[in-house]
Amino acid sequence: MATPDNAALFQFLLRMGDNTLILGHRVSEWCGLAPVLEEDIALANTALDLIGQTQLWLGYAADVQGEGKTADDLAFLRDVWDFRNVLLVELPNGDFGQTIMRQFLFDAWASIMLARLQKSSDQTVREIAEKASKEVSYHVERSAGTVVGLGDGTEESHSRMQAALDYLFPYVGELFLSDEVDVAMIQAEIAPDPASLRAEYDALVAKIMAEATLTVPADAYVHKGGRSGALHTEHLGHLLAQMQWLQRAYPGCRW
């Protein structure tokens, strides 16, 4: 069992690992379906990196939990209410533009968060952040470039990207919320105060959206409930039903 001391660390690691797991699965849904071959390969590569990072985060979460479980156990044997990802990453892909917009909104946060986590007091967190940062720097470069290309593109692509930003932006705020888990992480100097990332994030998003000729919505409404596990969207259950299908149909199956 996780002790009181590391129960918060376990939750924090689930939040990190579930974000990359669920987004990685969502992005992998494009495999073989993207509009052009290069984008298909790029999305599959991004998904692969995210799943790789998941193995590191959830692998460490399983160690901290101390019940002899593995990253696979945590990925495949939990149900909706146990997941701790933000709602942003479980939303359906929508069109290609919406997928790319979500990717940028996440990558921008991940690039800042991972830079901060490289100063964590926890050695394993530091090492995972160092490894993942290198991959995320490629992700954010590409997703930002594609947001600009499509936003400042044709009338059709511009309107789709603006619609994607309007739809997704209310889900961004959850990345910066905090609760008692975050307080424990801040006190132990394992992770930064989520809110302390906001100014840098807003500056990066503002810069890219200006280049993309897109308008960041002023309304600050925040959809929440994912990272606390209190209220996921209906979409997560459908995603898990597909992702966990094999383990649900054939419990304990391995190869």
Partner: peptide
């Protein structure tokens, strides 16, 4: 052509 290629370590 693309930052990503046939394996994670390559670009096109």
């Amino acid at each position: 052509l693309s930052q990503f290629g046939s394996t994670p370590c390559k670009a096109q």
